Computed example of a mutant assay.
Amino acid sequence: MTKSFKPSVITANDLLVGDVVYLNGTDWVRSLSEAEVLTDEADADIRLLEASAQVATVVGVYLSPVDTSDGGIETTHFREAFRATGPSNYAHGKREHI
């Protein structure tokens, strides 16, 4: 049995800063709410290949399923929510403001 494709965003880490980033059309953004939600599996696969080729900008590119049922974009897995808060080993970056 194959899994059905779920709406997803393309995510990665900024190569120089390390922040979690999301693809918004052609640009990388740091806010999940600005990410482009992909709903077609074939399109998502092509976009993922294109994003993975941006080795001078990002590392660790992959698709992350999201929930859009409430009108916004929310992660469906704890790991993604945790990644978005930034490094947890000490207060710096995004965690500095929590």
Rank of each mutant, 00 (worst) to 15 (best):
L32Y: 08
L32K: 02
S33P: 09
S33L: 12
S33Q: 13
S33I: 06
S33Y: 13
E34V: 02
E34D: 12
E34P: 08
E34C: 05
E34S: 12
A35P: 04
A35H: 10
A35N: 09
A35M: 06
A35V: 02
E36W: 04
V37D: 08
V37E: 05
V37T: 03
V37S: 06
V37Y: 15
V37C: 04
L38K: 02
L38W: 04
L38N: 04
T39Q: 14
T39C: 11
D40V: 10
D40M: 07
E41F: 14
E41P: 14
E41R: 15
E41N: 11
A42F: 09
A42R: 14
A42H: 15
A42E: 15
A42L: 13
D43H: 13
D43E: 12
D43V: 08
D43G: 10
D43Y: 12
D43Q: 14
D43P: 08
D43F: 14
A44G: 12
A44H: 04
A44T: 07
A44D: 15
A44S: 14
A44R: 07
D45H: 15
D45S: 09
I46H: 10
I46K: 13
I46T: 15
R47S: 07
R47I: 02
R47F: 03
R47T: 05
R47W: 03
R47A: 07
R47N: 05
L48H: 04
L48G: 02
L48M: 04
L48C: 02
L48F: 04
L49Q: 09
L49E: 08
L49C: 12
E50T: 01
E50L: 05
E50S: 02
E50A: 02
E50F: 05
A51E: 00
A51C: 01
S52A: 07
S52V: 01
S52F: 06
S52P: 05
A53Y: 06
A53T: 03
A53L: 10
Q54A: 06
Q54D: 08
V55N: 11
V55Q: 09
V55E: 15
A56W: 05
A56P: 12
A56H: 15
A56I: 10
T57S: 13
V58L: 09
V58F: 15
V58A: 07
V58T: 12
V59Y: 13
V59I: 08
V59T: 13
V59D: 13
V59F: 14
G60H: 08
G60D: 08
V61D: 05
Y62G: 06
Y62E: 12
L63I: 00
L63Y: 09
L63E: 07
L63K: 03
L63T: 00
L63P: 02
S64K: 00
S64G: 01
S64D: 03
S64Q: 03
P65D: 01
V66D: 00
V66T: 00
